[in-house]
Amino acid sequence: MSSSRDAIPSFVDGVRLRRLPDRTVLLVPEGVVNLNASAAATLGLVDGARSCSAIAQELSSRYDVPAVQLRADVDELVDRLSDRGWLCVSKAKP
């Protein structure tokens, strides 16, 4: 599955982002998911309202990286996490 252009990711029930003193993790029913800094920054913008495109645009303003590259990274992360059942993706309302 590939995230569509206006896909809006959100955490499924029982999944939470948790900031620890030295890192950010995802709490899932099966345990803990360690995130690297880029994954943590991306998931910190997942609020059930922002689309993947909007998340990439926001990250592009924080990092000196073209939005098109970030969009590919965001899509890949969302796809991988949704494949594991930790994120769900809905379509933006027209």
Binding site: L26, V28, E30, G31, V32, V33, N34, L35, N36, A37, S38, A39, T42, L59, Y63, D64, V65, L70, D73, V74, E76, L77, R80, L81, R84
Partner: peptide, 10 residues
């Protein structure tokens, strides 16, 4: 710096 987002399930 930005790097490819990655994760590890524990």
């Amino acid at each position: 710096a930005w790097e490819r987002p990655d994760f590890e399930h524990v």
